[in-house]
Design a binder for these strands. Structure first.
Lengths: 225, 225
DNA sequence: GTCATATTCAAGTGATCGCTTGAATATACC
DNA sequence: GGTATATTCAAGCGATCACTTGAATATGAC
């Protein structure tokens, strides 16, 4: 110990960045952004093994990004600071700006057609107030049930075809999913545009919408898993 | 190849975080935030070996955080996006919020006395306009020469004692240095307060001041940029 | 108490990282 | 051309990391 304080500080900062430096931990954080969960809840959602998940979660806790509380025999993990989302957003922005590869990947998702600019959340709220837009929630049904943008329709990516058939050709559609790391909305927009519909993505995802202080709806009989 | 696009995206994001996960690279970025430099320029400033520095810089370039241009026999590196600074700021904020250890380290710097809240940059600008404050630049002389807040006095940390002697007891002093990772301003504030002076830190550092779009002064015979 | 569930710990493995050392490359000046 | 300067490359070493496997611990139900 007793190295220079400056070096100690830098190690703290680097430690936080390192916590974000594994893809597995980013997916875990993305999950926790949807709401607090137990270890095997995240494990099931992310496809990681339980032990692996536990270790990642402990690492995130050591970095101060998540906190844990005991609830019966389960240990519930949650994001410790909403600003963690900002950090992930910034990572996303920087990646999109700086690295052409990200564009390539997203363009690949979009099937080669250029995706339009995403719709800002304030802009979406304005259009919703005018009833001028159909909002599409492309997340799994249980996450939709826990919380969603009021008036949003929940459609799985696999059911997009049937959804598209029942929509007016001129309708304006805005899709959202979990957030910047989530590709569901990208896929949905690509699929709908391929059908000639006017579909765009919302900027960010539901966590960002909530972080703005906007209302969400939840279905009755709320489950937390 | 051809893993899932989602995984590929996550790896891009994780790659950026990983670029920030080494203390050495954070100090390099902090240096580059002061202005573009060649490899051995950063090496000299950071105390790292030239080869090591070169490799870190290439890693940062691979992550898209810096760009390089050739200038004669030197290769000049610079930050590729000012938002990188925001990212580092957020890292700093999260560290300060989430980890008690950071407070401990900073308190150790302050010699046990509680440091006051830093002064927001807008607040500082307002007070400067009223002439109600002495601004202290605690960075090395060459960095001060390249750019500094107009009206700021450049004092090395080692010369603080003589500076303190020549100051009115009631004067309000605001110190700044390179940015959130830099501890000079912390040390200066601690030293001045130990002498009974009313000293506080400016929030952020000179790069953040510039990122706000505020004016800076440079000494004549400007070195490089 | 026994049993089942949820989480954590501990050991092991292959891969990557940070750093050093020494050689290789590129550019400018003579 | 040769020589000096600035940067990059390549190999090697110890440390750390992500993940797996299997055992250990803690809580609640019986």
């Amino acid at each position: 110990m007793s190295i220079s304080p400056k070096a100690a500080l830098l190690e703290e900062y680097a430690g936080i960045a390192q916590a974000l430096s594994a893809p597995a931990r980013l997916t875990i954080l993305e999950q926790l952004a949807q709401g607090a969960r137990g270890v095997d809840g995240v494990a099931a959602k992310t496809g990681l093994s339980v032990a692996n998940c536990s270790q990642h979660l402990q690492q995130l806790r050591r970095a101060g990004l998540v906190t844990s509380t005991r609830a019966g025999k389960a240990v519930i993990y949650r994001l410790s600071d909403p600003r963690t989302l900002e950090l992930m957003d910034l990572l996303h922005l920087l990646a999109a700006r700086n690295i052409g590869r990200v564009d390539d990947i997203l363009r690949g998702l979009a099937g080669g057609t250029d995706a339009p600019e995403p719709v800002a959340r304030t802009e979406l709220a304005r259009r919703m107030a005018m009833g001028a837009v159909t909002v599409l929630d492309v997340r799994p049904a249980d996450e939709y049930a826990a919380a969603h943008i009021p008036g949003a329709v929940n459609v799985m990516v696999s059911d997009l075809a049937t959804f598209a058939d029942g929509v007016d050709a001129g309708a304006q559609i805005v899709a959202y999913c979990r957030g910047p790391y989530c590709v569901y909305a990208h896929e949905a927009v690509a699929a709908l545009r391929a059908r000639g519909l006017d579909a765009r993505r919302m900027e960010g995802g539901l966590p960002e919408w909530q972080a703005d202080g906007r209302d969400v709806d939840a279905c009755v009989g709320q489950s937390n898993r």
